[in-house]
Nucleic acid binder design. Structure first.
Lengths: 207, 207
DNA sequence: TTGAATAAAGAACAATTGTTCTCTATAATG
DNA sequence: CATTATAGAGAACAATTGTTCTTTATTCAA
């Protein structure tokens, strides 16, 4: 490759970003790259933009583009393995960014009971709720019924709106909830996180 | 609370950051916050720094501090109270920290298929895998079988170790996997994240 | 009524910003 | 050889930056 070695510059910038979590100004970039002319630094930045490593952010600033986080085979996977599994760059996906689009309106809520197991929502999970008091029918909502939060599917029939559980196996335990007068929706289910508590290590039965 | 409501400003900034992944300049912050004087904006930023939501970055810039990413965890409503006065006992939680204890050994892996639905692991979810080549029997593991990754329960009988699916309904589709020679474990299932794609808005059926 | 805090605005400034335009080495190519 | 692209430097500029200092408006308690 006799082209300008973009990657030497990129590497230093990636390390810097890992440390400081910020893309520095042209001046500081010049220092980081040992470049005397800011104009040249600017040129390199343009190149990195063209290559998809950086992109413009508001205010004439620059931010990392998706490719910036692409790790060129950071995983030492033996040859022969389907790399298809890794094409999401899992290591560098910030879970927070991934899950939460409107941070100020998003809260977490611990799941109680098994009324929603059919949707893969288990006791102990944390559901991600985006606040809002309306929701489409068929969506999972966090509603307030009798001063208690409950996570259910919003449904509607000729009698009006009601809440449904999703547990086929024990459907008898969870009859539809028809609110006395008003059905108050607290927010919309937009995601879930689960942390499994690794069961006690039973020695012997171990691979 | 007759104090300056920092959180109103913080909320807007958090949403902005979620969108743009950058902390804007004082001028742009002023616009975002509807503040006419950049000096006042600056003051608010200082306050946010004192509270630990922001911190200084090189070049006189500002970046989010750890507290910036904290989320509130909701709790049960205190019975008898009007629904407005939620018990927002704001327990704070950073999702990344909560889920990932050993960042360097943790990867995310997209789930394919429904072989593990009984454990609430659905297609499209991301499982959190902690690397390691041993695991206790009974745990969910990410294993490599025939050069493909598969997420299953590690089991054992007199014939040796094997892998089990967890899908009672279609158990016929997922017979136990007995590896030809060696069963290679890639990592242990320690958590899960799910992002739901809000279904298309059907007008009319909306509360 | 007085007097503080608090919340906000205005003005001003030196430094830095991103950017553009021009110039010069160096290396490769015909 | 001459030429042409590449890699880099220098200078210059208007705009924006973070910051400080001063001045109002509003609130609230003494």
């Amino acid at each position: 490759m006799q082209q300008l070695d973009i990657f030497a510059y990129l590497g230093k910038l990636q390390d810097y970003f890992a440390r400081e979590k910020i893309i520095p100004s042209t001046t500081q970039l010049s220092a980081l790259w040992n470049v005397k002319a800011r104009s040249w630094t600017h040129q390199i930045v343009q190149r990195l933009k063209e290559e998809g490593f950086l992109e413009n952010a508001p205010g004439g600033r620059v931010r990392p583009a998706p490719r910036f986080f692409e790790r060129t085979v950071g995983h030492r996977v033996r040859a022969g393995l389907p790399q298809q599994a890794f094409d999401v760059q899992p290591e560098l996906l910030r879970i927070d960014d991934y899950l939460i689009e409107k941070p100020s309106q998003t809260i977490l809520f611990p799941v109680k009971g098994d009324s929603m197991v059919d949707l893969g929502i288990l006791e102990g999970d944390m559901v991600i709720i985006e606040r809002g008091n309306t929701a489409p029918v068929g969506q999972v909502v966090l509603a307030i019924v009798d001063n208690e939060f409950t996570l259910k599917v919003l449904a509607r029939d000729q009698e009006g709106y009601y809440l449904e559980a999703r547990n086929e196996k024990h459907s008898g335990d969870y009859p539809p909830i028809r609110p006395g007068q008003k059905l108050e929706i607290y927010g919309l289910y937009v995601g879930l996180i689960r942390k499994t508590h690794p069961a006690g290590h039973r020695p012997g039965s171990h691979l």
